[in-house]
Amino acid sequence: MARVRQLHVNGKDFQIDVDGERSLLSVLRDDLDLTGSKYGCGEGQCGACTVLVDGVPIHSCLATVGGILRRKVTTIEGLEMDGRLHPLQEAFLKTNAFQCGYCTSGMIMSGVALLQKKPNPSEEEIVAGMKGNICRCGAYQRIVAAIKEGAKALQQGVK
């Protein structure tokens, strides 16, 4: 089985030596101790494992680490810059857009990807863009508000 020896995550090259068939999620969590991305279903239904690969949101539970190659992976741990939260992280705090928080990493990563594509999304666009993410605590209305808030902050250049 092909081994994977390097992974680029959050701006850093990690030297690893793992079976390429392993899921990206398990390597991030178990080998790199980046546990912000969560296992929720293993079938790409809940979005808790969402990370960005070259800026595109993917389900890291379904991606094999062998398929990532040299592409750039961004996880929730990579959003904070010099101790400053990403505006969308701030927006989640401001709107209390979570309860247990287990879906939050995936929600924020999906939200970041959405805002990259649509900097000023309508409510319908947020709902459509986020429907692959489940919040079992049901904080959907707040998450929509957080994404609107985050969009506003990003557009105003608040960093």
């Binding site: 980046l34 912000g36 969560k38 741990e77 705090l93 928080g101 924020i108």
Partner: peptide
């Protein structure tokens, strides 16, 4: 939420 920052940064350690 008192430890809200831990959750939006993915730092909170759940059992898993």
């Amino acid at each position: 939420k008192v430890n809200g920052r831990e959750f939006v940064t993915g730092k909170h350690k759940y059992t898993s």
